[in-house]
């Protein structure tokens, strides 16, 4: 079995702050990480590798520094890493991104394509499904679990609002995975040492199969009207008291703020 996992480097949003004046992200000093949903998807692929000897390729589209997550993937145990990077891809929204990735995936043979459900920086959950559409493959999103019959059929547990949906899908197909599906393994020390001995294939526009009009800013119909930060509120005070006492506290507070006289 051949598996491809799409991964993305994102700022660690648990450590991110927003400039209250400009409404933009303060990226200084914010570490970059492998997107959690993608990492969970990668773990799913590596488990299939452990069990069935699957060959696992990772691919990412991003600037040169995104190479770090490909090395990380090598250190976790993948077999091949492809870095999709070209100035022609710059400024892409989800549609242009999915076109570029699909263009690369046309050049790779696979039975299963795994993406994370969504990236923690954009939170759109669009790229995985869009790739499936471009490649005309069946897709199952929001995966919580996946089992393989060892031949060609996957049994999938899909998270939906009311509960779970169970499906059987034949390869080839595309799935998007939730971060809660797997706890990703740690990189191994030996894997990290080896990761820097291995080749990361760098692919640009010339290596992939895509219409240039669908790429970069030109291929991006999305435009951002306005981005703003929600105002910060200080933590409130919590009182667990009887009603009479609570009324007294509220009146006192309102008087302190000159709302009541």
């Amino acid at each position: 079995m051949k598996i491809v996992v799409c991964i993305k480097q994102v700022p660690d949003t648990t450590e991110i702050k927003i400039d209250p004046k400009t409404g933009t992200l303060i990226r200084d000093g914010v570490p970059s990480i492998m997107n959690p949903d993608d990492k969970s998807g990668l773990e799913m692929a590596l488990q299939l590798k452990d069990e069935y000897g699957a060959h696992v390729t990772v691919i990412t589209m991003g600037p040169p520094q995104a190479e770090l997550i490909l090395r990380e993937a090598y250190a976790m145990g993948v077999d091949r890493a492809i870095h999709l990077t070209d100035r022609k891809f710059a400024g892409a929204d989800t549609l242009a991104t999915s076109h570029a990735l699909a263009g690369a995936l046309r050049k790779i043979d696979f039975d299963l394509l795994i993406t994370g459900r969504q990236a923690i920086d954009g939170d759109t959950a669009q790229v995985g499904p869009q790739i499936a559409e471009h490649l005309d493959l069946p897709q199952v999103s929001y995966l919580q679990d996946l089992k393989f019959d060892g031949v060609k059929t996957f049994t999938m547990k899909r998270h939906i609002e009311e509960g779970y949906q169970m499906l059987e899908v034949d390869a080839p197909c595309v799935v998007t995975v939730l971060s809660s599906a797997n706890k990703a393994r740690y990189m191994s020390v030996g894997g990290i040492v080896d990761a820097y001995q291995k080749e990361v294939e760098v692919w640009g526009f010339n290596e992939i199969e895509v219409d240039e009009a669908n790429l970069g800013l030109k291929g991006s119909p999305t435009s951002v009207y306005k981005a703003f930060a929600r105002g910060l509120k200080p933590a409130g005070e919590l009182y667990e008291v009887e009603t009479d006492e609570a009324v007294g506290i509220i009146i006192k507070k309102l008087k302190e703020k000159f709302i009541l006289n």
């Binding site: 990189m187 020390v189 030996g190």
Partner: peptide
């Protein structure tokens, strides 16, 4: 043990991670 922390500076030929003493000190 599972991820190689017990053998950081030991060469791969002896089953170690093939790292160095700096990595070991960082660990």
């Amino acid at each position: 043990a599972k991820i190689g922390i017990m053998g950081i500076p030991i060469p791969k030929q002896y089953g170690g991670a093939g790292g160095n003493n700096l990595m070991y000190a960082m660990a």
